[in-house]
Simulated scan of single mutants.
Amino acid sequence: MAEEKTNVMRILDQKKVAYTPHHYAHPDGAVDGVSVAALIDRDPSCVCKTLVTQGASKKYHVFVIPVGRELDLKAAARAAGEKSIEMLKQAQLLPLTGYVHGGCSPVGMKKQFPTVLDESVEGLDTIVVSAGKIGAQVELAPAALCGLIRGKFAPVAK
């Protein structure tokens, strides 16, 4: 059965960015990233979560880090050029990005925010990020993702 394309997949197609779609069952809604990695048979070090934060300046920043790791808020603030940074409240995610918690992708947010990918994924052949909804992921080259979203690599995960 062919799964429907998400907006993220349509953007990747339009921009001619090669990717492999992955779909997984999620009977109970959002599942944690390490479980998603197991469901799609990928190493958690190359499956990434997309975290949205707000800096002391009130600007928003996006971080893409491996699912088994945590965002280092001090390192994230340094990478973003902020005095401090904090996680966005879950209720703010959908209105701000257009994505639900568990289905947030660095591609295709309502507005393109400055995005940092953890340096640990820079050398990988491919990484997996959300395709914009729970149950759908896309696997693509980190450099291709970084170029598409005008991101940068920096050490932000611990």
Rank of each mutant, 00 (worst) to 15 (best):
K74F: 10
G55E: 03
A157W: 07
P114G: 07
K5R: 13
Y99S: 00
R69A: 13
A18T: 14
K158N: 15
D72G: 11
S84M: 07
Y99C: 00
E3D: 12
Q137D: 13
Q90C: 01
A91E: 15
D72T: 08
V31K: 08
G68M: 08
A77W: 06
A136T: 12
S130D: 06
D125N: 13
H23V: 15
A80P: 01
C48F: 09
L71W: 10
D41Q: 15
Y99M: 00
A2R: 15
V107Q: 06
I134T: 09
A91V: 12
A75M: 10
Q54F: 03
S130T: 03
V128R: 05
H23R: 10
R78S: 12
Y19H: 08
E122N: 09
V128Y: 09
T20H: 12
S105I: 00
G151R: 06
V47G: 08
R69S: 11
L117H: 04
H26V: 01
A56C: 08
G33A: 11
L124F: 12
G29S: 07
L96A: 00
I11D: 06
L93Y: 00
E139Q: 07
K16I: 10
A154T: 04
L12P: 01
R10E: 13
L51G: 05
E82N: 09
N7S: 13
E82Y: 02
